[in-house]
């Protein structure tokens, strides 16, 4: 794909103290799976949902006494966009690998714990999927590990199937 896409950017400044709002913002940005473009500048591929998510965070920053702005932008070159996407895919790949490892560990756990782990890891799979804008191959490996865990837990429903939301 030669044409570059549109991205939505949140540029913000937040006072260093108190640290509470900074920590909350950091956690919310992490949950959204943003790309960090610089100090106080994060980006997501633009759509109605990503734009809205960053807009609410901009309001949080303002409420905490900071400054924030929402921008839409296009990368200057396709290569720059590829690099951005690759970085985001690598971050998700890391999360899928951790998920795969946790599934494998849970398969040998006692039955009750296995069922609990399955519920937790399915939720985790959905959460990672929601911030996965450029799915890496590790996604499929994690889906397979979840299915194996579901079978080990005696769950008739194959895990992960169609669970991207």
């Amino acid at each position: 794909m030669a044409a570059v896409g549109e991205w939505v950017l949140l540029a913000y400044r937040l006072p260093r103290e108190p640290s509470g709002p900074r920590t909350t913002l950091w956690r919310r940005l992490r949950r959204l799976g943003v790309a960090q473009l610089g100090d106080g500048v994060v980006a997501l591929p633009a759509d109605a949902r990503t734009r809205e998510s960053l807009e609410w965070l901009a309001d949080d920053v303002l409420a905490a006494g900071g400054t924030a702005g929402i921008w839409t932008a296009r990368p200057g070159t396709a290569a720059q966009e590829r690099e951005l996407a690759a970085g985001m895919a690598a971050a998700r790949a890391e999360e899928y690998r951790a998920l795969t490892g946790e599934c494998a560990a849970a398969r040998t756990a006692p039955a009750a714990e296995r069922a609990r782990a399955l519920r937790r890891l399915r939720a985790e799979w959905r959460a990672v999927g929601r911030r996965d804008f450029f799915p890496p191959p590790e996604r499929e490996a994690a889906a397979a590990a979840l299915r194996a865990l579901a079978e080990a837990a005696g769950d008739p429903v194959a895990a992960g199937r169609g669970s991207r939301s």
């Binding site: 909350t24 807009e55 609410w56 901009a58 309001d59 949080d60 303002l62």
Partner: peptide, 11 residues
């Protein structure tokens, strides 16, 4: 909507 009373407040 952003910046109105009936919006997202405190999470």
């Amino acid at each position: 909507m952003r910046g109105v009373a009936l919006g997202h407040v405190g999470g």
